[in-house]
C-alpha cells in the first residue's frame, strides 16, 4: 500500500492516514456502538467521551461498560483493563527499534495512540525496503487518523443514542480482517513464519473462550515460540551442512 513514496513529512503523514482508511471504516461501528451503549451502562456523556479521549482502547472500553453496568468495583475494572490491553506491551517492544532514536515528545504521544490497527499498518511501513528517515511521520498520520475517527464516532453514538441498531450486523469489521489478512500473507516469507502463523491461529481457536482476551495473548506467545524454535533449528542445520 506504500507503492507511491513521499519523501516529505507531509506526504508520510497523509500516506499513514490514507493507509489506515479501511481501519477507520472498521472502527466506526464500534465507536458508534460504544457511544450508544455508554448511557444505558451508566456512563454520562462526558464519561463516554472521556473514555474515548483518554483511554482510547476499544475492547477494554467495551468490557468496562459491561463491568460498570454489572456494578463492578474500580479495582476490578482497572485490573481487567490491564489484562485486556497487555498485548500492547508486545507492540511497544516490537516497534521500539523504530522509535528508539526519537525524543520523548514523539515517543510519549505515539505510545498513547498505539492500537492494534496502527500497529498493523505502521509495522508494515517500518518494514518497507526504502530507508526513509521520516517513517515516524507515517506512524503519526495513522495514529491521528485512528484517534480522530474514534472520538468522532463515539460522539455520534452518544448523540444518536439507541437509534442506530443493526449497525453491528453490517459487517464493517471485515475491513479489519481483510487488512490484517493481507498484511500477514505479505509477511509469510519463510517457513518458520508460516509455522508461527499456523500455531498462533490454532491456539487462538483452542483458547477462544478464555476471558479477557487472554487467549489472544497465549496464541501470540505460541506463534512466537514456534517461529523462534524453528528458525533456531533451521539455522543450526544450515550451519552444519
Amino acid at each position: 500500500m506504500t507503492t507511491t513514496y513521499h519523501p516529505t513529512r507531509h506526504g508520510e503523514l497523509l500516506q499513514g492516514a490514507r493507509d489506515s482508511l479501511p481501519m477507520l471504516a472498521g472502527a466506526a461501528p464500534f465507536g458508534i456502538i460504544f457511544g450508544t451503549l455508554a448511557g444505558p451502562s451508566g456512563l454520562s456523556l462526558l464519561g463516554a467521551m472521556g473514555m474515548s479521549l483518554f483511554v482510547f482502547a476499544g475492547s477494554s472500553q467495551f468490557i468496562a461498560l459491561t463491568l460498570l453496568s454489572g456494578g463492578a468495583g474500580l479495582a476490578v475494572i482497572v485490573f481487567t483493563t490491564f489484562v485486556v490491553n497487555l498485548r500492547h506491551a508486545l507492540y511497544s517492544a516490537t516497534l521500539l527499534p523504530h522509535v528508539a532514536a526519537l525524543g520523548q515528545r514523539w515517543r510519549i504521544p505515539l505510545a498513547f495512540w498505539l492500537t492494534d490497527e496502527t500497529f498493523a499498518v505502521v509495522q508494515h511501513r517500518y518494514g518497507a525496503a526504502d530507508a526513509s528517515p521520516l517513517k515516524h511521520w507515517y506512524h503519526l498520520g495513522s495514529s491521528l487518523a485512528m484517534y480522530g475517527n474514534w472520538i468522532v464516532w463515539t460522539l455520534v453514538g452518544v448523540l444518536l443514542g439507541r437509534s442506530f441498531e443493526g449497525l453491528d450486523k453490517l459487517g464493517l469489521e471485515f475491513a479489519m480482517v481483510a487488512t490484517f489478512t493481507g498484511i500477514v500473507v505479505s509477511l509469510l516469507k519463510t517457513r518458520p513464519m508460516v509455522a508461527a502463523a499456523i500455531a498462533a491461529g490454532a491456539v487462538a481457536l483452542l483458547a477462544r473462550d478464555m476471558p479477557y482476551k487472554l487467549g489472544l495473548l497465549l496464541a501470540a506467545l505460541a506463534g512466537v515460540v514456534v517461529g523462534v524454535l524453528l528458525e533456531g533449528r533451521n539455522a543450526t542445520e544450515e550451519g552444519q551442512a
Partner: peptide
C-alpha cells in the same frame, strides 16, 4: 518499552522473537 528508548538493546533472541509478533498477533485476531 517506548520509555526505554535507545538506552536498552534487546538481546538477539528477543529481537528474533519480536519479528514473529506481527504475524502471530494478527493471525490470532
Amino acid at each position: 518499552f517506548f520509555a526505554l528508548g535507545d538506552k536498552v538493546q534487546f538481546p538477539p533472541l528477543v529481537k528474533r522473537a519480536l519479528r514473529y509478533v506481527p504475524v502471530a498477533v494478527l493471525t490470532a485476531i
